[in-house]
Amino acid sequence: MSSTPNLLTVNEAAEILRVAPETVRRRVRDGSLPACRLGTRSIRIRSTDLQGLATPAPTPDALETRIARLIAEAPPLTDDQCSRIAMLVRRGGDAA
C-alpha cells in the first residue's frame, strides 16, 4: 500500500459529504478544509481531512448544557452594562 494520501476531487469530496461542490470550494477558500492545487484549476483534498468537517451536530440537551455553562462562567455585568442593556430593551433593540 502506498504512503501517498488518498486525494479526492472537489466533486468526490462533495459526494462523500453529501453537499454541493460549491460548499467544498467555499470551505477550501475560507481555510476550514485543507487542500492542494494542481495547476491553476484542479483542487485535491485528502480524504482524512474530510473527517474534521464531519462532526456530529449537538443535541438540544448538549446545547442547553453548553449555554448554561457559558452563562455560569460569564463575569457579572457592571452597572454601566446593565444600564446600556436596559436602554436597548426600552428602545426595542435600536442602538442609535
Rank of each mutant, 00 (worst) to 15 (best):
L53F: 04
R29D: 13
E22A: 15
R84E: 14
P60G: 05
S3G: 03
R25M: 13
M1I: 03
A62S: 07
V10Y: 04
L88E: 01
C36F: 14
A74D: 04
I85T: 03
S2F: 02
S42P: 02
S47I: 11
S47P: 00
A57F: 02
A86D: 14
S42D: 14
V19S: 02
C82P: 00
L17V: 06
Q81N: 06
A57Q: 06
A72W: 02
R41E: 14
P5F: 07
L77G: 02
P60N: 03
E12S: 11
A72G: 01
N11D: 14
L33F: 09
P5G: 08
A95N: 08
L7M: 15
L38M: 14
T59I: 04
R44V: 01
R27N: 14
G93W: 01
R90C: 02
S83I: 10
A95W: 09
V10F: 04
L53P: 04
R69E: 11
T9R: 12
D94F: 10
P21V: 14
S32I: 12
R91P: 00
S32E: 14
G39E: 12
G31T: 12
A62T: 06
L70D: 06
M87F: 08
T4S: 07
T59A: 11
L33V: 03
P75G: 09
